[in-house]
Structures are given as C-alpha cells and as structure tokens.
C-alpha cells in the first residue's frame, strides 16, 4: 500500500471513530445487551453446570463467549451502518470526488468497527472478572479470546459492509443484521453439544461457524492450551472472513465503480 493509502485510511478511521463516539446510542445498547446476557445467563442458568457433562466447569467461563460474540457482532455491524449512513447523506459520493484512495474509504469504517468491538470485548471481559471469572490459561488466554473476538468481528464486519455497499439502504442493512440471531442461538450457546436435545439444533450447531468460535474460546477459558480445539475457531474465522471480505471487496468495487 502506498503512503497515501495509509494516510487516507488513518483519516477515514479517525473520522469514523469520532462520529461513533458522538453517537453513543450506536454502541451502548449493544454493550448493554451483551452485559445483560452475561448477568442473566450466569444468574439463571449457572445451576446446570452441576451436570456431569460440564465436568465441574465454571458456567461464567462457559457463557462468557456468548456475551463476547454478541458484542463482537454488534460492534462489527457498526461498520455497515456507518457506510450506509455515508451513502444516504451523500458523504460517500463526496469522498469519491476526492483523490482519497478507494480502499481507505471502505477500510476506515471497518477498522473503526474493529476498534469498537475491541473496546466492547474488553469491557465485557472486565465485567466477567468482576463477577468472579477465572481463566484457566491466565492473561494469555484472555488475549487469545480477544483475538478470536476481533477475528470473528472482522468476518461479520465484512458481511455488514458488503450488505451496506450492495444495498446502500439502511433498512436493508438493518435486515441483514438479523443473521445475528441464528448465529448466536443455533449453537452450543447455553449447554455443550452433548446436552442439546433436538436433532435439528444439533445439525444447526454443527453447521454454524459460531459453534467453533465458542469452543475455541471455552477451551482456553476452561480447559487450557488445547491446540486443536483452539484451532477450530481460527479455521472458522479464516474461512468465513475470506468469504465475507471477498463479498465486501466485490460490493465495494461495484459501489465505487463508474458504471
């Protein structure tokens, strides 16, 4: 990348961070929901960790990835919302009229979304520590969880930016975020795979890449450094990110192309 691309990306990211901070209601609800998940599920469901399948694991550590992934998806979704807002108010066209690198125009909101989800994830982990979280792998494990959250957020940011660039419409981009629900809940959200009763939910959990994200995080939080279990999340992120970032890149090319 040329120095102009770096400089332009820095300018675009800074501007997106600034406008996000000026609209606290664009991230506070998502943060509240994620914290709510953590408090309510821990408070209401922690008893099931007495079941033998849990092998004595702390339910807080088991449910924390759900809260983190929820925050990550919500934060990354901000990238798409930001692009849609720019398209609708004409700012996107204004940027296209400048010599700013086309890549930076799309990267700016995505990087800002990543920063947002990084901060949100840190806050959720902080709340979990206040509630008594113990991490089997220590701070190294927390760092790994953060990286997985960012990776999964990037995959979702690619999706949300792609939908935004393709539709240029707030309602359509909003509708696109409904994928959040199947991603979060059709998985090993509340109990391990072995305890899921319905066959259809078992199939959905196997297909759903979020399952591997959960497993990867839970491995370092509960079990320790188990390489293969950790890698499942990394592989899921690599595959899904490749698909969604390609989708975003193709959509971006179309959005900035000159017809």
């Amino acid at each position: 990348m040329s120095s102009n691309v770096w400089r332009d990306t820095w300018l675009m990211t800074r501007r997106n961070v600034k406008t996000t901070l000026r609209n606290p209601f664009s991230f506070i609800p998502n943060l509240m929901i994620s914290a709510f998940f953590l408090l309510v599920y821990e408070g209401g469901l922690s008893g099931i960790s007495q079941l033998p399948t849990f092998e004595g694991a702390n339910y807080l550590a088991f449910i924390l990835p759900v809260s983190i992934v929820s925050a990550a998806i919500g934060g990354a979704g901000g990238a798409g919302q930001s692009i849609v807002k720019d398209i609708e108010n004409g700012f996107f066209s204004r940027l296209l009229l400048t010599p700013a690198s086309r890549l930076s125009i799309v990267l700016g909101p995505i990087i800002a979304g990543m920063l947002q989800l990084f901060v949100q994830t840190l806050l959720i982990i902080g709340i979990a520590f206040l509630l008594g979280l113990e991490v089997q792998t220590g701070m190294g494990g927390v760092l790994f969880v953060l990286l997985i959250a960012i990776g999964w957020g990037l995959a979702f940011a690619g999706y949300s930016a792609g939908v935004a660039l393709r539709t240029g419409n707030a309602q359509a981009a909003q509708a696109g975020t409904f994928i959040f629900f199947p991603l979060i809940f059709l998985s090993t959200t509340f109990v391990p795979y072995e305890l899921i009763d319905a066959q259809w939910l078992k199939i959905a959990a196997v297909i759903n890449p979020t399952t591997y994200i959960f497993e990867s995080m839970r491995t370092v939080l509960i079990d320790g450094w188990v390489f293969w279990d950790m890698m499942q999340g990394v592989i899921a992120i690599t595959i899904v990110s490749t698909l969604t970032i390609t989708f975003a890149a193709v959509s971006a090319k179309r959005a900035v192309s000159r017809g």
Binding site: T19, G90, F91, S93, L95
Partner: peptide
C-alpha cells in the same frame, strides 16, 4: 445532494477535506 457528514462540525469537515 450536499455531501457532508452531519456528525462532524463545519470546521472538522473542512479540515478533513484539506488533509485528504
């Protein structure tokens, strides 16, 4: 359509344009 970001101030918008 005016191409401005409603969340920036007038000064910030002009500075951003100049830096670009």
């Amino acid at each position: 359509e005016t191409g401005v970001d409603p969340d920036l101030t007038g000064r910030e918008m002009l500075e951003l344009q100049a830096w670009i």
